[in-house]
Write a protein that binds this DNA or RNA. Sequence first.
DNA 1: CACGGGATGGGGGTCAGCCCTGATGGACGA
DNA 2: TCGTCCATCAGGGCTGACCCCCATCCCGTG
Lengths: 216, 216
Amino acid sequence: MNKTRILLADDHALVRRGLRLILDAEPDLEVVAEAADGAEAVAAADESEADLAILDIAMPRMTGLQAAREISRRAPGIRILILSMYDNEQYFFESLKVGASGYVLKSVADQDLLEACRATMRGEPFLYPGAVTALIRDYLQRDREGERIPDSILTPREEEIVKLIAEGNSAKEIAETLVISVKTVDRHRANILQKLGMRDRLELTRYAIRAGLVEP
Amino acid sequence: MNKTRILLADDHALVRRGLRLILDAEPDLEVVAEAADGAEAVAAADESEADLAILDIAMPRMTGLQAAREISRRAPGIRILILSMYDNEQYFFESLKVGASGYVLKSVADQDLLEACRATMRGEPFLYPGAVTALIRDYLQRDREGERIPDSILTPREEEIVKLIAEGNSAKEIAETLVISVKTVDRHRANILQKLGMRDRLELTRYAIRAGLVEP
DNA sequence: CACGGGATGGGGGTCAGCCCTGATGGACGA
DNA sequence: TCGTCCATCAGGGCTGACCCCCATCCCGTG
């Protein structure tokens, strides 16, 4: 019987180590590669011939979501499980959109993670209980209003801007960092705020911190 | 030989489980209690007769720092190790202030965590390498300027203002809440920013979240 | 009592955040 | 090829954030 070959990506070595112990203790699972950020994860996915990638959502350089998008584009055969600190509908739906088969909260028990791995490898999507509620609520609402998913998701560029704003950079600094005009940063910020229904950088920052996009 | 009895507090069950595997694998360490938030940790410290409390810094209900303050007040015999995602001087110093003997980043290797536990139990403070740099820099600066640590620099009123700012309120809203003039709020904010050496509300907000003054 | 710190304000200034309209070029799918 | 989405940018306007100097009042302490 073949073991499921796992790529494990989390920026905290200690957490990674703990997860590895949990996974390696199972007879049917085997961690064959580790990554400390999104970019490493993408590279590791290319080389490791893993069957399953477990990606933390909050990582430097490239978030788990961006990495998932990239991995599922370059290596469609790899199943992806997103690991998240936050019980957040927005991120759950976005995970599915970027090609992940499952979404697991860090607050679940280890048995749930193992079950998620196995379900994913069987080709079944894994939904953590809270997400089911969110899913149902969403479908009900869409049904009631007869519309499709509001698609209020941010573009990659916009996510980049969100990070920089939430890290405390002014529009001018962001413009210099990205080598674009302040006006464009302005434009992006306006679009972001409008999409997320927020009113200013401060609210956006709190959101980004909650979502694990940046550190406080 | 007696094992070191450990209280492990982290809001993510998965992470907690992983850490427990790391710790329980050692012959001289033993996890005897777990907690999923700061309040639970305080309660567990009262009951568990633990020797060492490992507290994640970011937890609901009560942050690791608040819990540490409470635990070291109620049970001074328990050594405390703060576990943090953030390589941040401010946080590090606050940890020491609330009675912790060590500060360990989640990005360190498992061996470093084990070494931190043992050093703490030997009565030695454990400093992760980056913190040493910060410590030295701080001492140098204090030495140069010939002043001592201005602890708890903010007045009660100012802390009230900080909270309101960090919760996303505008100066106008704060003025209405406190029934004072916008100008006074302005004045307070200016004093606060000057005292903390920060430049705007956004930086202040991130500080307040890190310090556990407000929820993200 | 006099002095200092804390809280409260006013006047007046600069600058950045935020929003609107409108426009262009490139990429990508129908 | 055409429409759509994304990223890019300009001009111009409003408001709030942030800063300066200064004044008042209360309070506790030397």
